[in-house]
């Protein structure tokens, strides 16, 4: 008998489509139309990144076993989270797309789950998705920290050289290391 993850592989495209639609539902209607329609990776980078990330997540979810590992999923989640981190979302909104995968899976695979009595497997899979959400949270924080760091850097760059020229700061790099 097939397992839930097997169905996930078989119905991959349907799950992906459902998930993608749910995620686009978090944007304004006119925006969703644009991001849905064009699949040119350069004219429509958002769709491109989302799709690449989501496809990887679903594929790997089917094969990763009970514990998803960060090394595999972080780059995939990153594709999506990095974009959503700069799109005026609250932290919960920005990372919520992971939970929408649960909904997509239930929507698409529910008949199979009910038929083959795969509820235990479903619970396990959903726990895995919860783990992904935690990864997403990490990435989100990293992105936000990065933005803060970039802002600080920009200010620093503006004044750094002026301070050095005004001899207001001690410039160690100019004098060489202590061991010289």
């Amino acid at each position: 008998m097939l397992k839930l993850v097997d169905y996930l592989v078989l119905e991959q495209q349907a799950v992906l489509d459902a998930w993608f639609d749910l995620v686009l539902g978090t944007y304004a209607e006119s925006t969703a139309v644009l991001w849905k329609k064009r699949d040119d990776p350069f004219a429509n980078p958002v769709r491109h990144r989302f799709e690449a990330g989501m496809r990887g997540i679903v594929t790997n979810l089917a094969t990763c076993g009970p514990v998803p590992d960060a090394a595999t999923f972080t780059p995939l989640l990153d594709e999506i989270v990095r974009v959503r981190a700069v799109q005026d979302f609250t932290p919960s909104q920005a990372t919520s797309f992971v939970f929408l995968l649960k909904k997509a899976i239930r929507e698409v695979l529910w008949p199979k789950i009910a038929e083959d009595n795969l509820f235990v497997e479903l619970l396990a899979l959903e726990s895995s998705i919860d783990v992904l959400a935690l990864f997403a949270l990490d990435i989100y924080c990293q992105c936000r920290e990065k933005i803060a760091a970039l802002r600080i850097d920009q200010i620093k760059k503006q004044y750094d050289r002026l301070l050095k020229r005004a001899n207001l700061v001690c410039d160690l790099s100019a004098e060489g290391g202590e061991d010289q």
Binding site: G25, T26, Y27, S96, F99, K103, E107, W110, I113, A114
Partner: peptide, 20 residues
Amino acid sequence: MAKYPPPEELIKINYSTPVK
């Protein structure tokens, strides 16, 4: 066929953007 229960965390947040 049984209707699936919606994941609880999705009930709380309503993302749909009003068409205005």
